[in-house]
Simulated scan of single mutants.
Amino acid sequence: MNLIVWNIPQTCSEQEVREFLQHELGHYAKNVIVHEQGTSNAYAHVELNADVPYVGDVIAQQVHGKLLGGVALQASVMPFDEKPAPPPQRL
């Protein structure tokens, strides 16, 4: 399962985002990659250590709305066989 997290504040560094998500997801966070950090379109791709779709959905629901740098994150999950696409760009 892959988790995409967006609406990441521009002020957050790649390390801050990675540490936050690893802390929030615990052993479910297999790999965290942050893209476009420092921009308004920053997002993170998290490879989840879960094979069952409903587990990914529950994880996405838990992350969705969490505050990072005072901003509510948005999250969605996708199966392994789908290539992660960046989230919609902010205007």
Rank of each mutant, 00 (worst) to 15 (best):
L68D: 01
S40R: 14
G56C: 02
G70K: 05
I33T: 14
N49G: 08
F20R: 00
N49C: 14
V32H: 02
V34M: 01
G65M: 04
Y54H: 10
D51S: 15
Q22S: 08
E14P: 09
A44H: 01
E36D: 12
L21S: 02
S40D: 12
A29H: 03
A60V: 05
G56I: 02
V52S: 08
H64Q: 08
P79V: 11
W6A: 05
G69H: 06
A50C: 10
N2Y: 13
L48T: 05
G56Y: 01
H23F: 13
H23L: 12
G56F: 00
L67I: 10
D51P: 08
G56D: 00
L3V: 01
E82C: 09
Q89W: 13
V55P: 01
R90P: 08
I33M: 13
Q10G: 09
V55S: 06
V58H: 09
N7V: 03
P53S: 03
L48Y: 02
L67F: 12
I33C: 13
N2W: 09
P79L: 06
G70W: 03
A75E: 00
P53G: 03
A85E: 14
H27R: 15
I33E: 13
S40E: 14
K66Q: 09
L91H: 15
V63K: 01
N31D: 12
L91I: 15
V71N: 05
Q89I: 11
N2V: 12
P9Q: 07
G65K: 03
L73E: 00
A42Y: 05
R18K: 13
R90G: 14
V32Q: 04
G70H: 07
Q89E: 13
N2T: 12
L21A: 02
L3P: 00
D57F: 04
I33S: 10
I33K: 14
P84N: 03
G26K: 08
P86K: 04
G70N: 08
I4F: 01
M78W: 07
R90W: 14
Q10N: 10
E36H: 08
L67P: 10
Q89A: 15
Q61D: 15
W6Y: 12
I4H: 02
L48M: 06
A44M: 02
G70V: 02
E36F: 09
P53Q: 06
K66I: 11
E24Y: 07
Q10V: 11
E82K: 09
N7S: 04
D81Y: 14
A42C: 09
V71Q: 06
H27N: 12
K30Q: 15
H45R: 09
K66D: 05
K83P: 12
V71S: 06
V77L: 05
P9C: 04
A72R: 11
Q74M: 12
E14K: 12
A75W: 00
S40C: 14
